[in-house]
Amino acid sequence: MSASGTTPASPDGPLYPGGMTFPTMPERLKHVCSAAALVPRTAPHRIESQSNDTWVLDDARLGSVVLRICWRGDVSRMGRETAVLERLPDTVRRPVVVGHGDTTAHGHPLSYSLTRRLTGQPLEDAWPALSTAERRSAIRRTASMLRALHRWVPPAELADGVCARPGLAAGTADDLVGADIAPLPVARAVALAEHVARTPHGDAGLMSAAVQLLRALGDPEPAVDDPGRHGLIHGDLNLSNLWWAPDGTVSLMDFEWTRIAPPSLELMRMCEYADDDAVNEADTYPSVLRLLETEYPELFRAEDIARHVRLYVLAYSVRALAIAPPDGPADSLPSGHAVHRVRRIVDGRWPAPGALPDSLVAAV
């Protein structure tokens, strides 16, 4: 499975299920440039991205823009992201949308968005060189945007569109992986764990224990996809999706995994990274979480947040196993493989000591 849940062996694999030719990256770029009437004045520059093709290009009509091409999983998420970006309040800094649409290549659906290119760099890249005051300012600005986002009440039709998941109709593992970065409600994560157990090197015992814990942590389950109870979250909050400008302003990037969910779900990726940092004796994300708690304390005081954070990271880790199932015994896999995180969560050894603020650590 690919990073967003489709099945080609590689981004440029020759065949798609059913024998359909799968478009290569250059073909995807060519089809989208044609559909969007783009005329790059210089060769587009590719930016690393986990779930899309992302390009910086200088267009004859639009100038300097970022083009993102969605081709894996539920490609309708690009339309949801665009609708959100166009309606968010000004207090949530984000790129300006200048174009979006859908097309096909070799019969395979593609969606795309075009945004004005921002000056600066991802906060992840800027962080090591920032002073203590600059880091605190960056997280203070981030907290302010998150608070505004979480308090915003989207129009009913937008909320309904954000909740729609047309790709889930078939209910396959690919569909579940491609729908959301956090496979919730819990039934989705359970289905993925059961799928992983059936893979050649899946640990059926571990997956059975993961299913039991998912159900225990999800009782009562934190509501998702319910506009009557919650508003929007970004959905993939981490330093690479925060943009640091030379004047110290911060913008939120990449809303493709946005959804209606409790604000606490916003902490999922940062907690995952913080645990990884603690295991590897680094302090980037542990310090980011401590700063964020200072600037947005109410986010860390949600009812049952420690239990919910553990649920979120377990569900996310099970999804990671569905994307990249073990290809051998656990002791032969790299230390960063998701199977080790799932084992530690199930055994009560997650998070690593010092990784998370005390407010996020559940007693086991």
Rank of each mutant, 00 (worst) to 15 (best):
G63K: 02
R310M: 10
E303Y: 05
P40S: 02
L232I: 09
H234M: 13
T7V: 06
F255S: 04
L57G: 00
A330F: 01
V75P: 09
P263C: 05
V92P: 00
L130N: 13
V97D: 10
S317E: 12
G205A: 11
S287Q: 14
G354W: 02
V211W: 08
R135M: 08
A355I: 02
A216G: 11
R198P: 00
R151W: 15
P155D: 14
P357D: 02
G228Y: 05
V224P: 08
V318K: 06
E194Q: 13
T24M: 07
L114T: 02
E281K: 10
L114W: 03
D102W: 09
S10Y: 01
P262H: 14
G205Y: 07
R117E: 13
A320M: 11
A338Q: 10
A37N: 15
L291K: 01
R341H: 13
S332A: 15
V361E: 10
R269F: 05
E81M: 04
D90H: 09
R307K: 10
D226G: 03
I69F: 09
G19F: 01
D347I: 00
I323F: 04
D225V: 01
P262T: 08
V98L: 04
A169P: 00
A338R: 12
A156C: 02
R307W: 08
A261C: 10
E266A: 07
G205R: 11
S10E: 14
A126H: 03
A282D: 12
R198D: 09
W127R: 06
